[in-house]
Design a protein around this nucleic acid. Structure first.
Lengths: 213, 213, 213, 213
DNA sequence: CGTTAATCGAGACGGTACGTCCTGTCTTCGG
DNA sequence: CCGAAGACAGGACGTACCGTCTCGATTAACG
């Protein structure tokens, strides 16, 4: 899983690599050090590889042997925070969407948010970074897609629904809120539920609804 | 206006400062150099002050005399891209929302998007950065707030509408799309219009609508 | 003089270089730091540029701005130790030779010897290093050459003397002694005088001398 | 012989060591690799143990199992170049001295010279290095000492000769020439013979010789 | 019209971090 | 137990920027 972003995966085959195997403890210690340093308020360019190495009790070369640059390391640190897709009850579409959407932007608390926002500039430029990012998001997007399609079948959602658009409508506001801190006036209480309900019901009033959309 | 973020405003009073006045050409050249370098694919930490100085044909001290650090400079560059709030026809709420929302994430094309995403990491930590960011957004948020309240009065929008939530619902998906490149499968054609219409109408189907929300 | 080995001489012409001029204090501090560290027992590869920079209270870049590598720096440090050619009385050839030869290998004490021996490996490979080395030695070789030629004229030396060979005969043994520590059994008292006298008189005995050479 | 400098001689006793015996091929390959790399223009600190290991087709540990550091390895490489003391005819002192002295500084050609000059900096500081160096030189110094003493007895040399000084007078100039490249103007043809003859006869002229020395 | 003073370009300064390379040790495997 | 292979902690390399500083040269307004 992580190996995708590793500089050189140690063992793609069953073939045992010669020489001393890489230390699993070092892997952990490095990623932990990154997360600690970020949690302590470092930004992506305040965070130095040398500080990571020192904190992890590891030589710099041990880091560079695994990741080719700082971004790859941060990405893996980000990936390590992504928990599993939460299990869905499968009864109410609204309930399942809420389950999925409640985790947006707060999967592992502030850490994931911070690391994610650190990586955003890279997303604009690096195709590989985008690929990794999508690989992380895809499982939970697939889950949401399935819920939405189920909703169309059960009549809980409009039959002409654009599924991909709906996913963006549901996740986008919460991402903007958490990562971009888009609107400081927005009441934070029950935000996921309020977003889901509003997107389901629409914000249009009687005058508009009469005419349809 | 810019002077807020300047290291030392040259003339707070009417009193004319003695000595040679600062060159306006340098100001321009520096900001232009920043924008050029970002447009050429630099990220926020690939972009070095020395490169900016070289590109602008300016000494480093001339930059530091105006901005105290790289972030302040980037922020001003960002601010310089923000155009005026677009004029609204004031007839249809849907039309005005579309006018406002069409510019989200693409105000001055790719440049604003790139610079904005570069600044996001700082937004997580710096209060002053957040303040500046909000100062830039506030005018167009005020405009949108006004449109939404008008919509409530005219019956085009629900009378119980949470205005701040609605703003996030309208802008968030487009921000997520442009800045986070959230969903690559999403059809890009007419996206602002489709977002506005879907948010207005809601995605809930007959089964759900019967029950209300 | 030093400028020969400098990476980029700051002012070859009368034209004043633009920008802040290089600090003469840094020049001194760096060379002094090198000499101190060598005197404290460092060898050429124990001596790190970083240690030199730290000792001199100077950034590494300030060193690399002046010298392109460690050897060039060591060479300049060596050059800085070479004092002036000692003044000669001009009466007795033996006396003048002794004056010249007494300084061989101990010009500025142990420091010059140590630095010189550090540079020897480079002498084997670098033509520029050889050039600099010769440039340092040449003045005192010229002086010795003159003394030897005067000796031939006055009859103090053999009329058929090979001057260059004689210089090597006089200096070589002392160099070998000081730099190569060639013969630990050799009595060190009055060594320069004993060398000069033995070279003047020859070591051949009556049996050999009869036959000439 | 070499074992003196080895990190751990595998079998000082008659006791046969258990396990796989060390490979003699590895010993050779390592020393050869050192000599090759030096011959290719490496200096003592350009030459890395890793390069030696790669060239020799050997693991680094195999080197460190035999030599404790780079200097010990270089010293052994140097020792391996030292041929036997050449046989002496024993008739003419001049002839025997010439035989001994002709090899000075050119025993195995350029390689010994280069390695020797690489080791000189270490000679200044390491007592063990000095010991090893002397151990290599001693046999040929003993031979020369014997020749000189024979010369005193036969009257070919002065009866009051300082033997140790004479050895330095004979070897020093050639060492200085070969290792220090002391005097580029010196005619190289027949240099050993010219040195021996000049040292035997002395460079003093009639005026000086009259007074004696 | 010369003085004054802050500006300009240029670039050196003390530092920090980069990413690479090497040292000497270690840990795995196969012979 | 030796062998190669190669990972390990550590540390120096030479480069690139940081933000500050010092130059000589402009460029106004003030006196």
């Amino acid at each position: 899983m992580d190996a995708v972003t590793h500089a050189a995966a140690p063992a793609d085959q069953d073939r045992k690599a010669p020489g001393r195997p890489r230390s699993a403890r070092a892997d952990e210690a490095i990623v932990d050090a990154v997360l600690d340093l970020l949690a302590e308020g470092n930004s992506v360019d305040t965070l130095s590889i040398e500080a990571v190495a020192a904190r992890a009790g590891v030589g710099k070369a041990t880091i560079y042997r695994r990741w080719s640059n700082k971004e790859a390391l941060l990405l893996d640190a980000f990936v390590s925070l992504k928990g599993a897709v939460p299990p869905l009850r499968g009864e109410s579409v609204r309930e399942d969407l809420l389950t999925l959407v409640s985790r947006v932007g707060q999967n592992a608390g502030i850490r994931a948010t911070r690391i994610m926002s650190c990586l955003l500039p890279e997303l604009q430029r690096s195709k590989t970074m985008q690929g990794c990012f999508q690989a992380v998001l895809e499982p939970r997007r697939a889950a949401m897609r399935e819920v939405l399609q189920r909703g169309i079948r059960t009549g809980e959602l409009r039959p002409d629904l654009d599924v991909e658009l709906a996913m963006t409508l549901l996740s986008g506001p919460l991402l903007a809120h958490h990562i971009l801190q888009f609107n400081p006036r927005l009441e934070k209480r029950d935000l996921p539920a309020r977003v889901v309900d509003a997107v389901l019901a629409g914000i249009g009033g009687p005058a508009l609804r009469a005419g349809g959309a």
